[in-house]
Design a protein around this nucleic acid. Structure first.
Lengths: 215, 215
DNA sequence: GTCTATACTGAGATAGAC
DNA sequence: GTCTATCTCAGTATAGAC
């Protein structure tokens, strides 16, 4: 009973500190002092700092990928044999990410941490990889129903690029003010940002292929 | 004469170490040992670790923004009163970034460092801000000649989003293999990637506005 | 099974001798 | 300067209390 509590406290605190100060710069001792738990309790629950990081990542990555999959299945069930529509597919893919970013403060910490790790080219935990690949493959298949003229390799790259760009923009906070341009109306309003992303990428996905005429 | 040499050695080494290990995790002592210079020499040339970071960033950011500006001016001179064209504008904006990323290993180190700092929401040096804003404003103006139907606030956000997404994709190396999809043909070939980005964002920029009907 | 107190080991900083 | 002894602090490990 105390176990669940300690585990969660450690995960929440690690999520925040890893995001704020980075993985390497966060010491286990600082972590336990903030979480109010014993140093050895972390080792008992997670075994190592690396495993703790993996669990912090997976705790939200798995539900996000599962939500993306269930969103897609719901669209497929509703559409029967009709087309799902590009915009609905984009929504299904990015909404879990947008919700995570709005889930303050912890969801946002997680996203910041994820993007920091990505820019550091760190390996993400293997345990989430199979689900992530499955999710991705299904979306590429669904998108290719809407855009049959695109080679699947290029379509896959477009879907990857879309998801990565959204995550990047959600975490990037300093570039916009530095540009000295009023853009808050779009970026800081969740509904506007969502609408923007859907329209922007709906148009982008329909761009003519580049692989066709080079391969 | 040794002065210039030491300065450049320190900047090159800092660029690499900051990118590989992060700014906080890179100790001045590690830096001087790798650069083969004296600890006091860094203090003499830069004054502080923070100023050193600023100079590492500015050393490439300023030439990149200047190149973007000169690219744009060349396009404007050639076009006279004709339209420049969306694709040409996108090329002018992103080519300096693509070239930087291909300038191995140091240009790539710089880009990795820049994106790490961005995900950490760190302030970038003020000295480059004016040029950066000027460059951005001119591009927004040029794009708005091609897309007069878009409100300038939203157009600005699209241009910001474009540049950020490109930089993100250039630095992100682990996500693609993790997806287990063959996408190397696009991502790993500089010409294909460039063509992809130009077409993808040319279509995206032409998407219908989202601000019009919400404001 | 959960958690605490404490110890171990190695990398890196520090500081004094020369 | 540079060498070397020492110190600090990191992640990790173990023994035993509840």
């Amino acid at each position: 009973m105390g176990s669940q509590n300690t585990r969660e406290k450690v995960l929440d605190t690690a999520e925040r500190l890893f995001a704020e100060n980075g993985f390497d710069s966060t010491t286990m001792r600082h972590l336990v002092s903030k979480a109010g738990v014993n140093l050895a309790a972390i080792h008992y629950h997670f075994g190592s700092k690396q495993v703790l990081l993996d669990e912090v990542i997976l705790r939200r990555q798995i539900p996000i990928d599962e939500k993306r999959l269930s969103n897609l299945k719901e669209l497929e069930n509703r559409a029967k044999n009709d087309a799902i529509g590009l915009e609905a597919l984009i929504e299904a893919l990015i909404d879990p990410l947008l919700e995570c970013s709005r889930d303050l403060p912890n969801g946002r910490h997680w996203l910041v941490l994820l993007m920091r790790l990505r820019m550091e080219s760190r390996e993400l935990p293997n345990s989430g990889r199979e689900l992530h690949q499955e999710m991705f493959r299904r979306y590429v298949d669904a998108f290719s129903q809407e855009l049959p003229q695109l080679p699947s390799e290029e379509l896959a790259y477009r879907v990857y690029f879309l998801a990565g760009s959204v995550a990047h923009a959600l975490v990037d906070t300093k570039s916009l003010p530095a540009l000295g341009y009023g853009m808050a109306k779009i970026h800081d309003n969740a509904d506007n940002l969502r609408s923007f992303l859907i329209r922007f990428f709906s148009a982008a996905l329909q761009a003519p292929s580049v692989v066709d005429d080079t391969g």
